[in-house]
Nucleic acid binder design. Structure first.
Lengths: 216, 216, 216, 216
DNA sequence: AATGAATGAGCGTTCATTCAT
DNA sequence: TATGAATGAACGCTCATTCAT
């Protein structure tokens, strides 16, 4: 599983405390991913982390705080992954674009991703903190895609590039609930990935700027 | 808002009962959509419906039953909509395919759709009833897409058609959390729809069967 | 099972009503005997009787009333049985006494008796109605025993006879919870009955009046 | 009142916890004895103990657990009393037997005994835990009686001794509901005790083994 | 007579949170 | 830091009872 990087809020903490906080966040993530948000209770997290509820409340004064830090930590992990995608300048931009698409889709089949993101999306509908963290990760993901699309299509405006990136990102993320971990068609992820790669490649390469704005 | 068709379980009920059940389901849907699943409590639903908890339990013996009927009713509404998509034989299959894509995407911006589906996806990760209802609606949606794709591309095998339909469906549904109701980029739904229409049209028209199975 | 004689309260009722009341009481008795007092709910009784709760409340305005009538009816059945014990004047009084002891003990093994009386005793500790009905049945039972003891022992005072009858009655009833229906030692009822018959016969025949009042 | 010995489950608890558990069990016993089993609710117990329902559930995770511990504790108190009955070897076995009979009967008039045992008997008809605890106490009581009877009557087989002990025990316990605390004839307990002592003494001394097996 | 619909109180239980130690 | 103890509100659900039809 992805590691859980602590936010800078904990920079000044002792190593022991950082370990405790980290253990708690890992436990919370596991509960959330394995049992869903309604079962993400302070008790369950404390039990999973092997500490008392009182102690959990010492590290996280309330559930809101825990949830915020949890979302930040999980999302930071994904953000760091995206940031590490190498922009190998030797390869054609469109090929690097396809690589990124395939990379993101490859992640959908992990238990963590399938368990976490639908919960995040649902939460973001009513929880501002979740909505904010959701924006954070997808701004990064969209930025990665937009950079590559801009390189492939210097003729497009920034807005047009942005729209394409937004669509491609949503289209990829949407696969989660159909071919994700233990989902009904999870064995089809590889071939769906092929369809995605082909489709987005064509789309990005061939769409005319005017198509984006045209009336239906 | 979409109406909530009662299941045939209630066919034999009195008009008064059907009205009460319908009111309850509408209240439950509103609570779910507006406040999210964790707030979907028997008390909240009863209060919203203007009845007592006792009476709510009279109509739905337990929360599981209420949730099942709610999911069935909501999903039946979507299923009926899909079933009504006219297969206008005068138009080319690829044009009808694009119409369907635009129709589905047009639905994403409704409050109900944006509020409901992420909740359903999250629920389906841990609740078998939700998982089953989710399968039901997406089998229909995928079937609609697959029929059209098969008509456009008689050269593809059933499996290949199915994979394309699965991808297109996931790609459309994924837009929900980015351009849905009150989401950050909801004003971009029309142009993203254009990108989707263009991209899927190209994909379906031009992909070679061998592309689907090729190694990455 | 013993029949359930309706009290004279229902003498003026139509045959149809008497049938309904009787059905309800039988259902209530069955629920009480089979499931215990905590499960003797209006709903359970109505369901068992195949009528609605509303209708049950039509016949018995509240649970107290139902319970009172139920206790009266059940106990009346036992009372009538006791009353039918033939005082065969041809046999010796002590033999008839033993017959009555054996008769009462023979009843303990029925499901109804084992299920009903402990519930009645527990109820009588806190419910005046139950206490009153309990007095009623045991006054009769004690009277039967006392009459025979008085015949066996004309030398004893009425008080002394009464005390002996009270003791014998309690001693018999107490067997219920040890050798009653499905109780741990229920297969020993016949031999325990022998011990009882022998013991009470000796006791009644041989005890001296002065023994009853002596200090321990 | 009898003290309530905590089971060894609580041996490792802090003094404060043991005090709390003990207070709760005492409160629960009082509620059960004074108000009966249907009123033995978590809320009533908590209120009686002067704590919150939440705290009650902290000590006893559910009502079943509370009931089990309560029954165990109450019964352990009686068991310990029985175990302390001195087998004074200087006196004749039959005299010691009579003493035990008188000792047990002397207990019937306490509020606790009269309130508790009928509730236990009723409960045992439908609750396996109650049935088990009931077996536990009566196995001890029967053992005490059987030991003495065997000493009095070395000519009887173990089975025969057991049957006599079973009968005597039931006969004693049965007095509870007639001459127990605040029962109709409670003032007669002393004289009934005399009758019992005399009757059982004669029975045990004089019954012939063959009487136990004879047909009625 | 009989039903179905409705209520409000109370049930056992879980929850996030607080606090003394 | 860490625990165990405590709270009060809310949870899903059942209950006896009422009422319009």
């Amino acid at each position: 599983m992805r590691h859980l990087p602590l936010s800078e809020n904990y920079a000044s903490f002792s190593e022991r405390s950082r370990k405790a906080v980290s253990d708690i966040l890992i436990s919370a993530r596991d509960v959330l991913v394995e049992q869903g948000y309604p079962r993400l209770t302070m008790r369950n997290v404390a039990e999973r982390a092997g500490i008392s509820v009182g102690n959990l409340n010492y590290y996280f004064a309330n559930k809101q705080d825990l949830l915020r830090e949890l979302l930040q930590a999980i999302i930071q992990g994904y953000v760091e992954d995206f940031s590490q995608i190498i922009h190998d300048k030797d390869r054609a931009a469109i090929d690097r674009f396809e690589s990124v698409v395939r990379f993101i889709m490859g992640d959908l089949e992990t238990r963590e991703t399938t368990g976490f993101f639908p919960a995040l999306w649902a939460l973001a509908n009513h929880d501002p903190v979740a909505a904010h963290e959701m924006d954070r990760i997808y701004d990064v993901e969209k930025g990665v895609l937009a950079d590559l699309i801009a390189e492939v299509r210097p003729d497009l405006s920034e807005d047009q590039v942005n729209i394409l990136a937004l669509f491609v990102m949503g289209a990829i993320e949407g696969q989660t609930v159909f071919v994700g971990f233990k989902r009904k068609n999870s064995e089809l992820l590889p071939v769906v990935t092929n369809a995605a790669a082909f489709g987005f490649r064509r789309l990005v390469s061939e769409i005319d700027g005017s198509e984006i704005a045209r009336l239906s």
